[in-house]
């Protein structure tokens, strides 16, 4: 994973709640066995509608997606994260995220920015009003700022995940440093536990 320190640019307002991962990347796309090329399928069914916000030229080139509450609920498909990133998004801002989506996002370096309802609402209105609004997200300081709209907010980020994002660290490598602990734990498991044998 590449380190993620600052995300800065414009945003797309997706003003809906409960955007599930089936909408982010429809199941037709899940048959692929690669990790790349999912951007084309992002919001596949909604993009057929010419008025869908992603089709509006004034929001082209945005790197941040601003969405309503419960973004990324539903299916565990990490393809949703790959699709958002492949399309060009580096961060998603919402008042609340599905747990699995949030986990998946930080594994690939897509930044989930959880703002309280008030700040998220203000940002949504600001981005709807001004597609060119400049937004900066600072992982180190855990802040989001949009000076043009007078918005300055902070967001929670687990310190360990923050560290991993800032350094671009590989999760598996980190865990394998604790091989001895895993061996020890494994030695103490009850004998009745099943195996696939």
């Amino acid at each position: 994973m590449q380190p993620v320190r600052i995300v800065s640019g414009t945003a797309v307002p997706l003003d809906r709640s409960d955007v599930d991962t089936d909408q982010i990347i429809p199941s037709d796309w899940l048959k692929r066995v690669e990790r790349t090329g999912f951007g084309q399928g992002l919001f596949g069914e909604w993009r057929d509608d010419r008025d869908f916000v992603l089709n509006k030229p004034e929001y082209a080139g945005a790197v941040i997606l601003v969405a309503g509450p419960n973004f990324g609920v539903g299916s565990s498909r990490e393809h949703a994260v790959w699709a958002l990133m492949d399309y060009g998004f580096q961060a998603v801002v919402a008042p609340r995220f599905g747990d699995i989506f949030r986990n998946n996002a930080t594994k690939s370096g897509l930044l989930p920015v959880q703002l309280d309802a008030e700040a998220a609402g203000a940002l949504m209105r600001a981005v709807l009003a001004d597609p060119a609004l400049d937004i900066t997200i600072d992982v180190e300081r855990r802040t989001l700022s949009a000076p043009g709209a007078g918005i300055e907010a902070s967001f929670p980020l687990d310190p360990f995940i923050q560290h991993r994002l800032l350094e671009g660290l590989d999760d598996i490598g980190l865990t394998l440093r604790h091989r001895d602990d895993i061996d020890r734990f494994e030695g103490g498991r009850p004998a009745w536990m099943p195996t696939s044998a």
């Binding site: 565990s76 990490e78 594994k107």
Partner: peptide
């Protein structure tokens, strides 16, 4: 609980999962 593909890889490699 359900996990994403990066976590699938993590479990395959380590038989563990880091979770809050």
């Amino acid at each position: 609980f359900g996990i994403g593909t990066s976590e699938v890889e993590h479990v395959l490699a380590t038989q563990t999962l880091a979770q809050p």
